[in-house]
Design a protein around this nucleic acid. Structure first.
Lengths: 232, 232
DNA sequence: CGACCATTTGATATGGATCAAGCGATGTGG
DNA sequence: CCACATCGCTTGATCCATATCAAATGGTCG
């Protein structure tokens, strides 16, 4: 069954709908890869906190988030969890250009995704240089993203949190209000910090009037350039 | 001129030889991308410590190390230097799948590289799915490599240094003797540590009989599994 | 041989982790 | 509908790994 694992309990089983997704979004119309995924893919729903695929499983499918949010992660031998990335609506994940998944993936909230066989994408890519080019572009932007993360990980806690907020703001529409679908612990595991440090750092940024903590999950960016200075 | 910048002084100017590289290596014969680079590329020599390209410059060329070694890096606003990667003979660098270089590149020692126009590779990729697939594979392995780095960067100094040594041993033939072409500071800037910490950690690993410091630049791995345990 | 770097080693400082406790919102069962 | 349990978040106190500052040593190349 599609990317489903034994960890799904009866109550958290993802729902599969086999009819095609429609209408195709504007984005898809401009991007042959996304278009192909929507044309050929099935939609699946995953309840909050359920596994989409596991670290080490065969990477037979590629996914695109339709609604909700996804985190990929890896459990290190000492029990710590490192988050590989957060994926929001429109983002493609699971396409790792190798045969096994490097990370596990879970729905952060109730999530719908489009799923397509990787082999099908690869076949298409062999015939259509446009698809092939899109795959390269996608891979390149993943690479860039991870490199940016890498740069973040050598900085101070304040710089990491500021960088994270700016990244989330950019990815979710670009406004000043950032809705965080993930917990403090998720953010901490993404940034290589503890959740206490994330909490304290957010407080400290609020005290400096760089941000406002409207609710724990809703942050308002008050002074983007101050954040960007930290982000350097 | 090919990837050359104003920072080259008269005495450190790279030498260009326009004749084709030959013979094509065994590796190249098995990999259409590498083969293409060798067939169409020119060789250039860069003296130790000279710039190959700069952060932000147009990424018009892709490079493969023939001999010597290369580091890519970025200077952060606070003056710290983050090293993007080390490239040894056989490694391809500068192919960032975007129009501008994300990092600068310098020769660590006297270095020869094969240079080829990126647009030429892209044109070939459009015609030859084999080349296209190789580019994807290359991009995928860069991605995996950076992800591994990312995982390293959230660990302790000992884990980072152990991981670094294992990586270098694997890449340079796989024997137990690791020749380090780079300084302690280079390693530190690669791992997000200070050079003092790198030095102390190497000493500590030697005290535990996990390694032997034959000379500062030549490390012998004495107990790989101990290193791997740290590396988890 | 001498000068210059890279490296090592030592002493101290500090940012973030860890340990600990309390608070607030959310949802559940009585 | 209320009381309570749970979970996420915040805040406080202390500890520790690594940074920082400082100095000595050693290897390498004119």
């Amino acid at each position: 069954m599609l990317a489903q694992t034994a960890t799904h309990t009866e109550s958290s089983r993802p729902a599969i709908s086999t009819h095609r997704v429609s209408p195709v979004s504007d984005l898809a119309k401009q991007n042959p890869l996304i278009e192909a995924m929507h044309m050929m893919g099935a939609t699946m729903s995953f309840p909050s906190e359920t596994e989409i695929f596991g670290d080490g499983e065969a990477a037979d499918y590629a996914y695109q988030v339709v609604s909700g949010g996804v985190r990929t992660y890896k459990i290190l031998s000492d029990g710590r969890r490192q988050i590989g990335g957060f994926y929001l609506p429109g983002d493609v994940f699971g396409l790792e250009f190798r045969d096994e998944h490097t990370f596990s993936a879970e729905a952060i909230t109730d999530t719908r995704v489009v799923v397509v066989k990787r082999s099908m994408l690869m076949t298409l890519a062999g015939r259509d240089p446009g698809i092939s080019r899109e795959l390269l572009t996608l891979s390149g932007s993943e690479l860039r993203h991870v490199q940016t993360r890498m740069l973040l990980l050598v900085k101070s806690a304040e710089e990491r949190v500021a960088g994270f907020l700016l990244e989330m703001a950019e990815r979710a529409s670009g406004g000043n209000v950032v809705e965080l679908p993930m917990t403090r612990r998720d953010i901490a595991d993404y940034l290589g910090l503890t959740f206490e440090t994330v909490s304290r750092t957010l407080r400290s940024l609020a005290n400096k009037a760089a941000i406002e903590i409207a609710t724990p999950r809703r942050i308002v960016l008050r002074n983007r350039s101050a954040l960007r200075l930290l982000n350097a």
